[in-house]
Amino acid sequence: MREDAAPVVAQSAHLELDGVVSGYGQIMAIKGITLQVQTGEIVALIGANGAGKSTTLRTISGLLRPRSGRIGFEGERIDAVAPHKIVSRGISHVPEGRAIFSRLTVRENLEMGAFQRTDRAGIEADLDRVVGIFPRLRERLKQDGGTLSGGEQQMLAIGRALMARPRLLLMDEPSMGLSPVLVETIFNTIIDINRNGTTILLVEQNAAMALQVATRGYVLESGAIALEASAAELRASDLVRKTYLGEV
């Protein structure tokens, strides 16, 4: 499609978006986003409903083709790569609303997460690891995904994404609809996953929570980056405090 096949990112940047425009049909939900995620970071992408957060993630994972702009991952362009091939390059996506396969069992859901892999023993070991992280899934391996509670579905969605052994994990609103206790649990897990070597790009409406775990953050407003700073700076900024942290 595009002429230049040269790497668009410095080797150190894990993920780089450069002027990405994307959306559905004629409506461009993101209008030129530039952002970087470095290896090992947790980067938060915060913003109101409809700011373009999910569109950004869906464009990175290939479900949407960018209208213009470039996306680089580990030094290679991925903006014209099919979604299933993006998974094999090391990016997993925990979609908004969890999107559990409700008619597949919990075990089958996890196995689908490892669809591209062929190392049976490794898959079994990772399945063990996932149900180790989320013991409630262990008891429910044979149940249909649809029978799980909201919190369990979120655990399954995260566990399922981990089954691909991603180097970059995209997470879309993991706290949505969960009780405060569960949100705490999920965010602790996110920190653990990151400590174990997975870079994370986290989309959240719960800005307070996201900025607690993130190293850096971007504020997205009507499809464009309004602010970029370290998590601490964002927590302190007037804009974020008033608009996203609900302070007056």
Binding site: S61, L63, H84, V87, S92, A99, S102, L104, E111, Q116
Partner: peptide, 17 residues
């Protein structure tokens, strides 16, 4: 199983690889 997954949710199936 992949056929059943695609039947249920094509986009999410693609995200599984």
């Amino acid at each position: 199983t992949a056929i059943r997954a695609v039947a249920e949710d094509r986009d999410t199936a693609a995200l599984m690889g």
